[in-house]
Amino acid sequence: MKTSLTINGTEHQLDADSRTTLLDALRNHLDLTGTKKGCDHGQCGACTLIVNGRRINSCLSLACMHDGDEITTIEGLGQPGNLSDLQDAFVKHDGFQCGYCTPGQICSATAMLQEVKDGWPSHVSADLTGDVDLTNAEISERMSGNLCRCAAYPNIVDAIRETAEGRK
């Protein structure tokens, strides 16, 4: 399947078997290994990246379905020496131990903060139509699709909250 993907602003041409997931296309065909494979079944969130502004599990999507799409991976959010606000905050708050889930956490949180800005409610929001108060409970609920088996959750939540507060 011939597929054109714009990844972190650069267009890539891919010619891979139709079975190739977006995750495997990045890691095995395009040498973009920042996006991690955990469960490969949409349960852990390690493979989270941003497609056309929305966070998705790249393991549960076929590369050929994304012809023409704009994809942002962890490599596109920041680089050493030029980290994004969230990446900085993860370092500051020690939001990881082994680091394997971190790219997925940061991609997920990046898109999640946009969802909050767009006024999307969550399961724990007191009011479906009111402003979102990004409490720890809100952050935990909104990030429940990203597991951290080292359980760095308190620090991850701190990093996300500080980033959100800094942008207010």
Binding site: G42, G45, T48, R54, R55, I56, N57, L60, S61, S108, A111, M112, E115, P121, S122, H123, S125, R142, M143, S144, G145, N146
Partner: peptide, 12 residues
Amino acid sequence: LLAGASGQLRNK
């Protein structure tokens, strides 16, 4: 809807 799945899955 908000009680189901995760943010990533609901987007897809």
